[in-house]
Design a protein around this nucleic acid. Structure first.
Lengths: 333, 333
DNA sequence: CTGTTAGCGCCTTCAT
DNA sequence: ATGAAGGCGCTAACAG
């Protein structure tokens, strides 16, 4: 079934049918109704290929992410799909895994499907110089939206969170609460993780002369056991922290587990601050004090920007959101 | 850039270029190489619309789910995308939320994008008679794959887990461990939840004459506070359970939290068994004993079935996977 | 307001 | 082994 069939039945030309389908104003109400009735009766849906072929747009956005089973990614994905759909766009999902080397491959896939834009969730993609150039190049042909990452360039729109400020603030708070042996836990060397680490270091260095000890632990292995044993080994060596800042709630949960296994009392002997205000932070006991990464704000802002770009406007290229610390039970000021 | 450009540069016709792109055997090695070189040099990718217009397939699978921020859905999504991509298929994501009434709307969206098949994650969609008929009807035009749900019908392929057996087994184990006041927690009336509830009831009824008390609690509100307060109110009334089976790990986590808040010792005074073997069960302390829902098996089996269907074979329509209980710390036999 | 027609880029059948 | 040409369904420019 195609517009010819509809046109035949309605005794009009295919052009008229096309106009009706696309809500063109220049159709008489009478013809419109006649055509619409037949369209509904036959349950006709225009063929996207044919439409795309002419318009070269399929109202589809490519969403590039590492892995939706990551809780942060899943949240972003959920938000994007919902908002995009509300505005008539479909979401083509493309998961790259945690290796960012073959970004080109995935971008090519999305481009070959003629997506109208690419949303990249996570700052890992911007780590290498090659990838940066690749993204800048890609942006020549379609707008790119970076969630949680920062890259200057035409047709590139970034929204991220001021992680530096956030961890700096956390460090300050821990110090002011009397904590003097601080540990920063992180699991990636992404832009975002770096910003967090930098904020932590900055804070610690300011208190250096006040007898503060601090260090950071990169947990590259992502399974719980290895992180726990790293923590354990770490604690044994020389440094038993009284304050931990984690780059995400998952790591914070493991730190919490470690503390409980070792009968360390929270938050007196050890304070823990997580990151993301994820479901983990609410479901745990005690509940995690955490940094709200305002995922929803980031995502909805990005979709709005996207709509503005498609609407021919020129929105800001970079938007930074301010941190907010959610105090729960693992640390209180 | 299109095949005409390539054809020009290579001094061949577009037909030849098309043949090369599609690995047709009837092209001389020499021409093939000549064309391929230019294709690679220019980074040419055939236009999917044009291709789809003729072939009416876009090598895209529609994935219908409630919400990827649900941890189970996220896991399935991750698995599907990965396996489909490996086999040259893209994933078009479509999230319906938890209201299953407008299934038709979402199916129409996917069909209008000419997906080659639809994968439906979650058994909620099969709840109403209307939806069942809708799915059967849709299956006339393209294959449908049901994850965690069961519906007989041509061109409908189901993979689910024997939840009945699983909760039945859990109930048996709790009874054998001396538990006599059992509670089943669930949060949905999906097929899968019903199977779980039935298994629990079956088990309990068998022990009815041995002085066992049992009941179930449907937690429709999905926020932690209301579930906690439901549990609290519940405990106050008349029934303090010594064994809880939850329909997912999230509910189990909340039960765990409740127990800890009320200084109930685990697993002595209260045993908890979760469901799904999700990240929750491993990150909590004590770790959750849980039922492994073998998500990965379900998903990969479904993708294999899908490939078989596309390959013209006739695989089994319904596959049931057997339960496996993972013993951790909240209950031990 | 409505109809005619030329593409959009590719695949495929039919000639050669 | 290769080329020419029709057709896939739709949109938009143009003509009436």
């Amino acid at each position: 079934m195609n517009i010819y069939d509809i046109a035949n039945r309605a005794n009009v030309s295919i052009a008229t049918v096309s106009r009706v389908i696309n809500n063109s104003p220049k159709v008489s109400e009478k013809t419109r109704k006649k055509v619409l009735d037949i369209v509904n009766e036959l349950g006709f849906t225009p063929n996207v290929f044919a439409r795309g072929l002419g318009l070269n747009t399929m109202k589809t956005i490519g969403i590039l992410c590492s892995d939706p089973s990551d809780i942060y990614v899943a949240g972003a994905l959920s938000c994007f799909e919902k908002m995009l759909r509300k505005n008539g766009y479909d979401s083509l999902l493309c998961c790259s895994g945690y290796d960012t080397k073959n970004l080109k491959k995935y971008i090519d896939i999305l481009i070959s499907k003629s997506v109208d834009a690419v949303i990249m969730i996570g700052s890992k993609y911007i780590s290498s110089r090659d990838n940066k150039n690749l993204i800048k190049n890609t942006a020549k042909s379609l707008p790119i939206f970076l969630i949680n990452g920062s890259l200057k360039g035409e047709n590139i729109y970034c929204a991220y969170y001021d992680d530096f400020n956030a961890t700096k603030k956390c460090t300050d708070m821990l110090y002011e609460a009397g904590k003097r042996k601080l540990l920063f836990l992180y699991n990636s060397t992404s832009q975002s993780a770096k910003r967090k680490l930098d904020g932590f270091m900055k804070g610690c260095k300011e208190y250096k002369h006040s007898g503060i000890l601090f260090t950071s632990l990169l947990c590259t292995e992502n399974d719980i056991e290895s992180i726990l044993s790293a923590l354990f080994k770490f604690g044994k060596e020389n440094f038993i922290p009284d304050g931990i800042i984690a780059s995400d709630d998952f790591l914070a949960m493991i730190a919490l587990k470690f503390a409980k296994q070792n009968n360390i009392s929270l938050p007196e002997d050890l304070s823990i601050i997580g990151y993301d205000n994820s479901i983990f932070s609410k479901v745990s006991y005690p509940e995690l004090t955490t940094v709200d990464s305002r995922l929803f704000d980031l995502c909805s802002h990005s979709v709005n920007t996207l709509l503005e770009v498609f609407g021919g406007q020129s929105p800001e290229n970079i938007t930074v959101f301010e941190p907010m610390i959610i105090e729960r039970d693992t640390f209180r000021t």
